[in-house]
Structures are given as structure tokens and as C-alpha cells.
Amino acid sequence: MSAQKPTIVLVHGAFADSSSWNGVVDKLKSHGYPVVAASNPLRGLTSDAAHVRQLVSSIDGPVVLAGHSYGGSVISNAATGLDNVKALVFAAAFLPEEGESAVTLSGKFPGSTLGEALRPVPVTLPNGSQVADLYIEQSKFHAQFAADVPEETTTIMASTQRPVTDAALAEGASAPAWKSIPSWVVVATEDQNIPHQTQIFMAERAKATVVTVTSSHAVSVSRPGDVARAINEAAQATA
């Protein structure tokens, strides 16, 4: 009898939604994996991670948890102490140490132009706190986020992007799951959000298996086959 295939849980990052994983989902399902593309609230790191943690805890059997961009911070928080999570995959994503934020890491090495492309919108959260929802200016979305994706696609992505709060990006991480769970990192060499050098630094610090691809930040959209292969490798290596 063959071993149970793990459920692959995919967590999108800021300025995206679950549909950013569509190409990856298609590849994984063709190999027989059950897949869930989670909806990441993008409101605050602790609360976002708790949301994903509850989803993962509801799944019977082993899980491979993958995150893109800010979703990397979320999965690293969410997976700590969950015995059913067998591997983590970070696709052009943050792997924060305890106390580090996405803002801190994106500025660790030069190269990110995200700050210049953002449009803040003041909002009040249900608890009464005042934050800013951050959007990428639609006219800058293609060049900033997904330069290797056809413009007819990025026009739609820009219009449907989900904002992240400035508080979420500035919130420090809790104890990271990558210290105890085997990790794979897909490094995007042409990333304008998280500098290539930052991605390498985080991957090496985590002693992760590294897959390097020539891609924009939107690696799950432009290179879904490469991302799916990394997830498949992680699933097989930890079976």
C-alpha cells in the first residue's frame, strides 16, 4: 500500500489572492496531491498565522505548507508545534527569525523598490485600531510585482489585488517553524519586492534546500512548474 500523499496547503502573500496559486494547483493535482489554497486575511501576522494554523489543524494526515512573499512569515508562525506539518516551502518569501518583520528583512539588503510603488489607504480595524491598507499602484503593478507575466494577466492581478496592512508587514515574527521543520526555498532572482540577496541570506540561515529560478516576485504565476516541483520534492523527501 502506498503512503498517504500529504495535503498541500498554499498561503498567498500581500497584493495577491488564492488564485495566484492556480498554475501550481493544477500541477500538483495532476500528481494526485490534495490541495487547499488558503485565504490569508493580511490583517496582522499573529492573527493571520492563527487563521492558517486552525485550517492546517483541521486537516487529517500529513501537510506540506507553502507560502509566497509575506505568506512565508505566516506559515513559519503558523506551523510551529504542529506535528502534521512535515515540510515548509517558501516561494520568493520571508523566513523571519523571531522578532524580525517583513519590513526589516526587505530592507536588509538593497534592491527592493516596493516602497515607491505603494498607495496607502487609511482604515479602522474591528478592534478600533487605525492602520493603512497598502496597495501597489495599478500603473506600477506589472513592473514591480510580475514583470515576467503577460500584461493582460497583470492588469487583472492589479485590479483584484488584496491589500495588506502596514501593521502586518511591521509586526515581528514569533518562534520560527523553519528551525524545526525541513524547509525548501524557491529564490526568485529578478524579484523587485524581496531582494535576491535577502532571499539567499534567509535560505542559508535556515539551512534550507534552495531552488533558484529566473523570475519576478510573482513566481507562483510565472513559474508554476518550478514551484510545484519544489513542493513535490519536499513532499517526497519528508514522506
Rank of each mutant, 00 (worst) to 15 (best):
V123L: 12
K5G: 12
S215I: 03
I231T: 14
V123Y: 11
N232H: 15
S57W: 04
K5S: 14
P120F: 07
Q197H: 09
A237W: 07
N232C: 14
T160I: 13
A167F: 09
A117H: 02
L55G: 03
T209P: 03
L55W: 01
E116T: 12
G128T: 07
L114P: 13
T124K: 15
H142R: 03
K86M: 11
S101R: 00
F90Y: 15
G111D: 12
H31K: 15
Q144M: 07
N22F: 08
A93P: 10
P96S: 04
H196P: 02
T113S: 12
T104G: 13
G225Q: 13
G225P: 12
H217Q: 09
P41F: 01
V213I: 10
S106P: 06
A173G: 06
L42W: 06
L65G: 04
V185Y: 10
S106K: 07
T46M: 04
H12F: 03
A146I: 03
Q192W: 05
E233W: 13
G71Y: 07
L65N: 08
A79V: 06
V213D: 02
A16P: 12
L65R: 06
V185D: 03
G44Q: 10
A3P: 11
S139E: 06
G23I: 00
Q197E: 13
A235M: 10
L118I: 14
S2G: 12
L114S: 11
P62N: 13
D226R: 10
L82H: 01
Q138S: 03
A235P: 09
I156G: 03
I136S: 02
A218N: 02
A168D: 02
K108C: 07
S18P: 00
S215Q: 00
H51L: 01
A234P: 09
D166I: 00
F201E: 07
F145S: 08
A230W: 09
S2T: 15
Q199R: 07
A188R: 00
A87P: 11
V63D: 14
P120R: 07
V52A: 05
T153W: 05
E97Q: 13
T154L: 00
A14T: 02
G32D: 06
Y135F: 15
N193V: 15
G111I: 13
V149W: 00
